[in-house]
């Protein structure tokens, strides 16, 4: 394997800067890589030089997939940080490969029949490496996108208990909501029946409403309706003669907050779903 690739590898290493410069000129005006157009040449050129200097290592290995990975991961991470869209990062790679072969053709590197055969084998090997690089760069980009979404949704993910086991998660969620509802019921009873006042400490009621909206689809609406009915019923039983106005407003607000939370969580679930589809 060592012999057939020597010419193209030597060419890549010896002329890395020249080839990279031609590539940079191309990528900085190519219509399929518009994000590169405003990046200074000095910053762009290194991307190709790194590849051409890495070429020998990737070419002469029994494990080309692993060898390609060390380059691909770094390439993907750097381009992602520079906010280059994936399709442009891939096309820039394609151009890196093309410019190597264009240079080889221009320098008339493969003329004789034997050299032509070597060219075919070298080209096949190069394409194999690029297949791996394209796959790995795409995969890494998606991992990075997922990590970014995960970190942005960090608090919500913690509250939704996404990290706990399924059975365990369901047990804790149900338990917490039951306890919160019991507390809400006890508070309502205490204020209405014992103190005989409608001035109720209802802020705590929002906790089960918000949590259930995060944990179950339409959970916010169901729990808020339940709490609203409980409040109004308790008022009817224990507070005869006291106007309903305040408790009706409170109940209405429970349902509004529950519905809004459900809607927001639908949005977050959808965003998560889109990213999951791309990355899993």
């Amino acid at each position: 394997m060592q012999s057939y690739g020597t010419k193209i590898i030597d060419l890549a290493e010896t002329n890395a800067k020249d080839i990279a410069r031609q590539w940079a000129a191309d990528v900085r005006k190519h219509k399929r890589t518009p994000t590169y157009h405003n990046i200074p040449e000095d910053e762009v050129i290194d991307q190709a030089i790194i590849f051409y200097m890495h070429f020998r290592q990737m070419f002469y290995t029994d494990k080309p997939y692993e060898a390609a990975k060390s380059f691909s991961v770094k390439y993907a991470e750097d381009r992602y940080k520079e906010k280059i869209p994936l399709q442009e990062a891939l096309y820039a790679l394609i151009l890196i490969r093309r410019h190597l072969w264009l240079y080889a053709e221009f320098q008339a590197t493969f003329i004789t029949t034997l050299e032509q055969r070597q060219a075919t084998e070298s080209l096949n090997r190069t394409i194999l490496m690029f297949d791996y690089v394209c796959y790995q760069v795409t995969e890494r980009y998606q991992e990075l996108m997922k990590a970014e979404v995960d970190s942005r949704l960090g608090i919500i993910k913690t509250l939704t208990m996404d990290h706990t086991e399924k059975g365990e998660k369901s047990f804790y969620k149900t338990g917490i909501i039951i306890v919160a509802l019991i507390i809400a019921g006890a508070l309502t009873y205490y204020y209405h029946a014992m103190l005989g006042t409608a001035t109720l400490f209802t802020h705590l009621f929002y906790i089960p409403i918000i949590l259930s909206a995060m944990w179950w689809r339409r959970g916010g609406v169901y729990i808020s309706v339940f709490l609203a009915l409980m409040l109004l019923l308790s008022h009817a039983i224990f507070l005869e003669g006291v106007p309903f106005t305040d408790d009706v407003v409170r109940s209405f607000m429970f349902v509004v907050i529950g519905a809004v939370m459900d809607r927001l969580m639908d949005g977050i679930r959808k965003v998560e779903g889109i990213y999951k589809q791309l990355t899993t």
């Binding site: 869209p85 399709q87 891939l90 394609i94 959808k270 889109i274 791309l278």
Partner: peptide, 16 residues
């Protein structure tokens, strides 16, 4: 490859 990557990106952006 370019067309597929771009299309995926477009669909995702549109959905978002």
């Amino acid at each position: 490859m370019y067309v597929i990557a771009r299309k995926y990106w477009k669909i995702m952006k549109l959905e978002l």
